[in-house]
Simulated scan of single mutants.
Amino acid sequence: MKKLTKLVLVSSMAISANAMAMQAMDDASLSAATGQDGLNIGIGISKVEIEKLFIHDNDGLATAGLGGTSTAGAIVIKGNGTGATATKGIVIGANYDNAGAYLLASRNLADLTIDTDAGTSGTGGAFLNIGAQVSGLDIKIGEIGVTGSGALPTAASTNIRRGGDDANYNAILSGLSLKTGPMSANIQLGAAPQGAMVKLNASMIGGLEITNLGILDNSTKQGTGDGTAGNRAAGQIFVDSIKVADANAKDLTLNQSISVIGTEGANKGYLRIISSSGAVDNYVKGVHLGSQAAASIGDVEVQGLQTYFSPSLGVYTPGAVITISGH
């Protein structure tokens, strides 16, 4: 969810200012209106679409015993031929459910408040502060699979697209949809006296819901895989919906600190996410084994799920620490 939210913000700012009703107030106008210097930006975009998204692993897997060939491959998100994701891999729009209850009061996709501050020597000095309010989102993701990477563009290429090998492709997920309530984040660049580059501290109204999630097993596919006699389709675990909320509640608390850690000694750096949002309830509705058409085995409910991490030996702190780095 956090990655998708950041994707919305980056994509939104990259789109032309006349895409919808983008509003911006300069320092002078804002000061006259509120008595404060700074900059407010309202991003009035109703939808963001991405045709395909590739994440290339340029050296592949070196372990031959696991089938590795050290040849570049990629994770790809593309259209799955249905609905909003028929030809688009990712479609992000506002969540208009419940008569607009999950939208910002401004009806913008996001509102940004930007200030610069001299800071103090004890907290690293000057910094840029960006307060972000993000509307509830309706996110649809198409088919996710793996493919052989295409050739890198050369000086003679007519575009910068690399893409993948359509003849060497295996689907992993059939697609999914998720809806969120409004969220807020505070971002600090330069110094970060708040303790992290990004601080999420909000309540997602209505919780988080993921629908139509299908996990595919292509190792069982035979022939063309179209499901006709002698041509077995890939096996699938399909889930109608997954709902996540705070324990014994309907909303979902978001308390995360996101930091980018630089090089130190042999460690070349990584992204660190520390979560301290508290226990959650999960309700998984309609679990189908084999295919989406198979009879459901029922629903699965998990109450009061709480994770812990250990900052030191024998110490258990509620929450989780996730690190992401290259290898």
Rank of each mutant, 00 (worst) to 15 (best):
F127H: 15
I114R: 13
R107H: 10
D138K: 06
G124D: 00
D111V: 00
A118T: 12
G125N: 06
R107W: 06
L103Y: 11
A151C: 05
S135C: 06
V134T: 12
L152K: 09
A105S: 15
S121T: 11
L109Y: 04
T120N: 09
I114W: 04
L104W: 15
A151P: 00
I130A: 15
A105Y: 12
F127M: 12
D117R: 07
A105M: 10
K140H: 14
L137P: 02
D111K: 01
G148H: 07
L152Q: 08
G150R: 03
Q133R: 11
L112T: 00
N108A: 12
T123Y: 05
K140V: 01
G125R: 05
S135I: 10
L109H: 02
N108T: 02
D138G: 08
I139Y: 00
S121R: 00
T147S: 04
I139K: 00
I139G: 01
I139D: 05
G150V: 00
G148V: 03
V134W: 07
I144H: 14
N129C: 08
A110I: 01
G124P: 11
Q133M: 09
I141E: 04
A132P: 01
L104C: 07
G124Y: 03
L109M: 07
P153R: 01
T147C: 01
G148R: 10
A151M: 11
S106G: 09
S135A: 11
I141W: 00
D115W: 09
L109W: 01
F127I: 08
P153V: 04
N129F: 07
A126L: 06
G119D: 08
A126R: 12
Q133W: 13
D115T: 15
T120A: 09
G119Q: 07
G136M: 05
G148E: 08
T123S: 14
S149R: 09
P153F: 02
G131D: 11
D115I: 05
A118P: 11
G136P: 01
S121P: 06
S135M: 03
